[in-house]
């Protein structure tokens, strides 16, 4: 699918995220070598339980991203609530307190656009279930940089709006059920 070996995966999800991610992240094999960055829309005032929940379910390490952290292979990073998560071209993690994008902080677009700058064609971008259009612009940026783009099948997603908006912005993306996306990642 990609011209170069992939070096990182970015995932965006909103409403229906728990179900979709539960079918995807635990499927990652223990020896999975790519870092995975995940933005899930969250209420800003609450501690996120995603990292804890998935740490218990996954065979790879799962954590909430901290600012300036060096990126570790085979680790799943969740954006913390109330911060944008960005990837630096020097391949480290950055957080920002900039204004929300499409009412969201963290925003999927912010992660995807910065990761597309950092990884270029060596990036896979995945849009899962969600009820708004965040991620559409970001996925387009991933495609423009030559990366792999995947969208959960809208009819399978609990909330189809985000996959549909991503598809409209990025028609060349692969449409797959979550099981298909999991199989793709497992084969990396």
């Amino acid at each position: 699918m990609s011209a170069v070996p992939l070096e990182a995966v970015v995932i965006g999800a909103s409403a229906g995220a728990m179900e979709a991610l539960s079918a995807l992240l635990p499927a990652l094999p223990q020896n999975f070598r790519l870092p995975v960055f995940v933005v899930v829309h969250l209420p800003p005032d609450r501690k996120s339980l995603f990292a804890e929940i998935f740490q218990a379910k996954c065979r790879v390490p799962v954590r909430e991203a901290e600012d300036k952290e060096p990126i570790r292979a085979g680790t799943v990073y969740f954006a913390p609530p109330n911060y944008h998560l960005l990837i630096e071209t020097g391949r480290s993690i950055a957080l920002s307190s900039d204004e929300p994008v499409l009412y969201s902080r963290p925003a999927i677009d912010v992660l995807f656009e910065s990761a597309a700058d950092a990884y270029g064609p060596a990036l896979a971008g995945i849009i899962l279930s969600g009820a708004n259009e965040d991620g559409a612009r970001g996925l387009k940026a991933v495609a423009a940089a030559g990366g792999v783009t995947m969208i959960q099948r809208p009819d399978e997603a609990q909330a189809p709006d985000m996959p549909l908006a991503a598809l409209a912005a990025c028609p060349q993306a692969h449409i797959l059920p979550v099981a298909g996306i999991a199989a793709f990642l497992q084969a990396l």
């Binding site: 630096e88 920002s96 900039d98």
Partner: peptide
């Protein structure tokens, strides 16, 4: 300044 966020701004 951290470049990724600066670039975005």
């Amino acid at each position: 300044y951290a470049p990724a966020s600066l670039k975005r701004r």
